[in-house]
């Protein structure tokens, strides 16, 4: 095992993973620097989510290494990886994944409560972040009463309130319209830059990727220089439409 370079928060080397035989990642190496916003781009099925799962320790790659702050993640037992996710990482998925039984501020404070913060401190931090993200008016409502864009902002607030080292955002705007998309992304990137949080952002959208400091394109589970798919031929077989089918 070679120790990773010092200036990388997360460093991964030749990650291989397959889901029950279906290929996921085929040898991806990636380094994420401190306090940068890194976009992982590529079409659906190119292995973005699998890569983020491997980097965040939710998934142990079948081959390859993942290091976080010079500590190997791929050799950690499940309990320690769980603790790492709880205390150092934040996760924003395309689905807000809020707990429907809890109110908005309780959802935001949940990572803090899970870390053992007192009720009062967790509530104070959560309310502050809700105010910053302009959703404090809904603090006492339940998620079912909100719009999807508002729920996604709560999910962003939940990730930020825990003050993580790295936030993994997996297609955070996939289910939103354009106006909401811009607002959620701007909130996330601004907060991350002002608090020095590293963000790994998976997206298939070139517009979203433009907000990042650096872009890593993926295609079919491999890092590529640029994603250029072969030009689409004229609807195949239209010219020679046969009656035999």
């Amino acid at each position: 095992m070679v120790a990773p370079p010092d200036n990388d928060v997360i460093w991964a080397r030749s990650l291989h993973h397959s889901h029950n035989g279906s290929p996921g990642l085929g040898g991806v190496s990636i380094g994420v620097r401190d306090a940068e916003i890194l976009a992982v781009t590529g079409p659906r099925g190119s292995g973005k989510t699998t890569l983020l799962h491997c980097l965040s320790g939710r998934l142990v790659p079948q081959q390859g290494e993942v290091w976080f702050n010079s500590v190997p993640v791929h050799t950690m037992p499940a309990r320690v990886r769980e603790q790492l996710r709880r205390e150092r990482f934040g996760w924003i998925a395309s689905d807000p994944e809020l707990v429907p039984e809890l109110t908005v501020w309780e959802n935001t404070a949940l990572p803090l409560l899970l870390r053992g913060f007192s009720h009062r401190a967790a509530r104070k931090t959560a309310t502050e972040w809700l105010e910053r993200l302009d959703i404090a008016a809904f603090a006492r409502k339940r998620p079912h009463a909100l719009l999807q864009a508002q729920r996604q902002r709560i999910s962003v607030a939940r990730a930020l309130a825990a003050q993580p080292t790295v936030i993994f955002a997996d297609e955070p705007t996939a289910t939103l319209h354009r106006a909401d998309r811009t607002q959620v992304l701007r909130t996330l990137t601004t907060a991350a830059r002002s608090h020095g949080i590293t963000v790994v952002l998976a997206t298939h959208d070139a517009e979203v990727a433009a907000l990042a400091d650096r872009t890593v394109p993926l295609l079919d589970g491999r890092c590529v220089a640029t994603v250029t798919l072969p030009a689409k031929p004229e609807a195949e077989g239209r010219a020679a439409c046969s009656l035999s089918v």
């Binding site: 309990r79 769980e82 996710r85 709880r86 990572p111 899970l114």
Partner: peptide, 15 residues
């Protein structure tokens, strides 16, 4: 579904 989301967030199974 909710439990899965909580575990993904890093909630310990013991909790």
């Amino acid at each position: 579904h909710t439990v899965e989301a909580l575990l993904r967030m890093g909630a310990p199974a013991a909790v």
